[in-house]
Simulated assay, not measured.
Amino acid sequence: MTARLSTVHALGDRVTVSADGTELLSYVYRPDPEPFEAPKPYIHPLRTLTGNPVSGYRPHDHRWHKGLQMTASHLSGQNFWGGVSYLGPEEEYQHVPERVGSMRHDGFSAVTADDERVGLSSNLTWIAHSGAEWASERRGVAVHSVDTEAGAYAMDWSIHLSNVRADGEPLRFGSPTTAGRDMAGYTGLQWRGPRDFTGGQVLTPSGPAGDEDTMGTSAADAEWIGFTAEHDDTDARSTLLFAHAPENLGPDAVHASHWFVRSRPIPTAAFSWAFFEEFELPHGESFAYRYRVVVADGAWDHERAAAYLKGLQW
């Protein structure tokens, strides 16, 4: 069985998507104004079909973590992740406001909705702290495949990014690991879970796994991972699945992807596009990635997750 999807603009700063009256998510396109948090559009709250929350917002340990958001922790000396910047093994993390950039929502090119699919297409500009426009982005977010029997739905997130720097310089994408911190390759599309998801179970195609077993795994070896946890307040569990589109893993991808995932001390996962090595995007050139996030009620195991993902078309 399917539920009817609907969408509404709310307060002039977000688009909400609901299924049979349950709000599934809000895409906030007029982001929080705090410069140190690298203002950028994000999805929060993110909920299951029964309304259980599966995203965290401005947690006390990382105020710049906001639900599901596109980030770039190290980009040509700028920080589009937010917060403190990792400067290397000797200086480690420092408060460097002049390194923190932002992403400007320039408008929606399309907002489409019917009973089975909601799609948002938008244009953004990545802006360095100096005010220089560095990148132009075409973004897509689509909610689809609502399945009430499975208790799940899918959301696809696409990015097409172009280097538009006026100085003609390349964009160099990296991470704390490329800057010298071991196994801290966070960057790219990032999810932050709610506080009660701390200590949740990580899933991989081969079975349940610990953080240390999954961290840094190549997406070519595990094209999806999952995260399942128990809620506070309600007697319920929820599961999220994070999956790469096939072209992300092919020879035309701009760079190989790896997984960043933790259940402790914080619940988070990221599709890292520059975990171990930097890559460059020359001036005037572009790259694209597509990702999928499945949000489900209940504690799924890896076999159920694999079967469900296999049944979804890209």
Rank of each mutant, 00 (worst) to 15 (best):
S55T: 07
M103C: 12
P205C: 11
T7Y: 07
D221S: 14
D213M: 07
P41H: 05
E247F: 15
V294N: 03
M1P: 09
T239C: 03
G199K: 09
N123I: 11
H302T: 12
Y27N: 08
Q313N: 14
A179V: 12
T50I: 00
P59I: 07
R237L: 00
L249K: 08
W126R: 13
S102V: 00
E92G: 01
R117G: 02
G216C: 05
L203Y: 04
A72V: 03
V254M: 11
T234E: 11
S6G: 10
A236P: 04
G21H: 05
S136W: 12
L189F: 14
S6E: 15
P176S: 09
R139Q: 15
M215S: 03
H231G: 04
W134L: 14
R30P: 01
W191C: 05
T268N: 12
G107C: 10
W273P: 02
G284K: 09
A132R: 11
R99L: 08
L49W: 05
D115C: 03
R14W: 03
Y308A: 06
W259S: 02
F197A: 15
T217W: 10
S206H: 10
R237M: 06
S257Y: 10
T125Y: 04
D301A: 07
P265T: 05
Y42P: 00
A299R: 08
G12C: 10
L87T: 06
P246A: 13
T112H: 14
R104K: 14
R104H: 15
Q201H: 05
A306P: 03
L24N: 05
V295T: 13
T178G: 06
L309C: 08
S18L: 04
Y291K: 01
R290N: 14
V146A: 04
S175I: 10
S85L: 02
E169G: 13
R237S: 15
A142C: 08
L11K: 12
A150E: 11
G12Y: 09
V100C: 10
L189N: 05
G226S: 10
A154P: 03
L241G: 01
T2L: 04
Y29T: 06
E285N: 10
R139E: 11
P59H: 07
S286N: 09
A3N: 02
A184E: 15
W273K: 03
A269G: 02
P33V: 10
P35A: 13
S76M: 09
T16K: 05
D32M: 08
R14H: 09
Q94Y: 00
H44T: 04
A19W: 04
R192F: 08
S286E: 14
P53E: 12
S158N: 13
L87P: 02
P282L: 11
E133V: 06
